[in-house]
Design a binder for these strands. Structure first.
Length: 268
DNA sequence: CGAGCATGGTGAC
DNA sequence: TCACCCTGCTCGA
């Protein structure tokens, strides 16, 4: 679930439910009793996201820092008894937010939050993001662009789905070294992410297929799986490329399964 | 029902 | 580069 769009969407939901309100914080499962006690019965000022990191500022001067990792979730619902392993619960009389399986859940100082943000590359979902900062580092890197896109210190919020899809949509060869990537290709991918990721925030899923390749236009059945969006290459190894018909390829790159079309993606 | 895998990241070699 | 953490799903017996 969690690439950058998930965290930005979550920040919006947490603000709607809790910003300006005094919340009850608890750790039903017990793992985060101390962080919960620190913010219990204080007002949440605001939640925000930077890349895949979520930050919640509380009136007591403390910040809650959450990273969902691969399998974490932070789900809002109407009040109900906690089910399963709820590591942290934020609650008002109207709403509860249950955190499960996070990679990180900790109380931080403002200085620590600043340091975390400073360690992250520009986030295409933030209006203050500067693609030149990422370009400077990409140019000097010998690693493949598909590895650099996943490096949160170079740009933040991109995960394995957006990586594969933005490379495909811009016809970029995933193995092109950063130092040999054209600035035109980089700016094309950045601009594309700036357009695509807000759609992910809005819809809560990653859709990247252009109208001319949509199921309706191609005479394919639309995807039934609600969790996944319509994509060109992600997890489509062995299937036909929606554009040229050749077999989608798959290899592990930077520790994750990369999916791409060897015929469509030749740009540098 | 168990194994394997997943939109992520860390820490040990 | 690998083991590992954490949860929930799918797939094959």
């Amino acid at each position: 679930m969690p690439e950058g769009h998930t965290l930005h969407r979550l920040a919006i939901a947490l603000n709607e439910a809790f910003a300006g309100r005094t919340i009850t914080a608890s750790s039903p499962q017990g793992r985060f009793t101390e962080p919960a006690a620190t913010i219990d019965q204080t007002a949440m000022i605001a939640a925000s996201a930077h890349g895949k990191h979520l930050f919640c500022e509380f009136d007591c001067g403390h910040w809650l820092h959450v990273h969902l990792g691969l399998i974490g979730s932070f789900l809002l619902s109407e009040p109900e008894p906690p089910r399963g392993q709820v590591r942290l619960r934020l609650a008002t009389a109207r709403t509860v937010a249950d955190l499960r399986g996070p990679q990180l859940c900790a109380i931080k100082t403002p200085a620590e939050i600043d340091a975390q943000i400073a360690a992250l590359g520009p986030d295409p979902l933030r209006c203050d993001a500067d693609p030149e900062v990422a370009w400077h580092r990409i140019q000097r890197a010998g690693r493949p662009i598909a590895a650099l896109l996943m490096d949160q210190a170079i740009l933040s919020g991109i995960g394995n789905v957006y990586r594969a899809e933005v490379l495909f949509r811009n016809r970029v060869d995933p193995y092109r070294p950063g130092s040999k990537l054209s600035k035109r290709s980089w700016l094309g991918m950045w601009t594309d992410l700036v357009g695509l990721m807000p759609i992910g925030v809005r819809d809560g899923r990653i859709d990247t297929v252009r109208p001319e390749h949509s199921p309706e236009a191609m005479g394919r059945p639309p995807r039934q799986d609600i969790r996944g969006g319509e994509v060109y290459v992600y997890r489509r190894a062995g299937q036909a490329c929606l554009v040229c018909g050749s077999r989608i390829r798959s290899e592990v790159l930077a520790g994750r399964n990369l999916f791409w079309c060897g015929k469509c993606q030749r740009r540098g």
